[in-house]
């Protein structure tokens, strides 16, 4: 049983990593979105191991379901077919990207992960249940919850205002 859990865990890890690599290395934008979806599915599986089936469902629903579809629509509406595939990447950009991410990884790994001794909380209150999450969402974090809803409303209205009108309308 334990071995099976471990194997499944590595399956999710591989899914996450290959998806992320595909998302950043893809030459065709649609493949990038596909890689992103695969990576997000892998992370959704990892949330199961972190004790929250609720967040797994939310991840699949919001990220894989909503955001990836929005990206696909963005590609469909915003790009003409010959622009959907990116041109061959500039060598300089790829090199700079490797440098930036490599140095960030180095510092975080050596300075933070290598030197920190994580101390668990002395005692825990509550549990991982969805009841507890909902209770603290509407009692302790009520203000943040309402702020998020306002932000989402403004984002929706702003997106509609920005994207209104057809493609021909604005191009002189």
């Amino acid at each position: 049983m334990n071995l099976m859990m471990e194997v499944l865990f590595f399956g999710f890890v591989v899914l996450t990593m290959t998806g992320a690599l595909l998302a950043v290395r893809a030459k065709i934008l649609m493949h990038g979105v596909l890689g992103l979806a695969v990576s997000l599915l892998g992370v959704a599986g990892l949330y199961l191991y972190l004790g929250s089936p609720f967040l797994t469902l939310m991840q699949v629903l919001i990220y894989v379901g909503a955001i990836c579809v929005v990206l696909v629509f963005g590609i469909m509406v915003g790009y003409t077919p010959n622009e959907v595939a990116e041109k061959v990447p500039m060598g300089r950009n790829a090199l700079l990207g490797l440098l930036a991410s490599g140095s960030a990884a180095f510092f975080l790994m050596v300075m933070v992960l290598g030197r920190t001794h994580w101390v668990p909380a002395a005692h825990r209150v509550g549990d991982f249940s969805i009841e507890h999450v909902g209770e603290s969402l509407l009692l302790t974090w009520c203000l943040a919850f309402e702020m998020i809803s306002v932000v989402l409303l403004i984002a929706i209205v702003g997106a509609i205002i920005l994207a209104r009108g057809g493609r021909e309308e604005g191009s002189q």
Partner: peptide
């Protein structure tokens, strides 16, 4: 790793 690939 996700942060790294994202920055890259």
């Amino acid at each position: 790793f996700l942060l790294m690939t994202g920055i890259y």
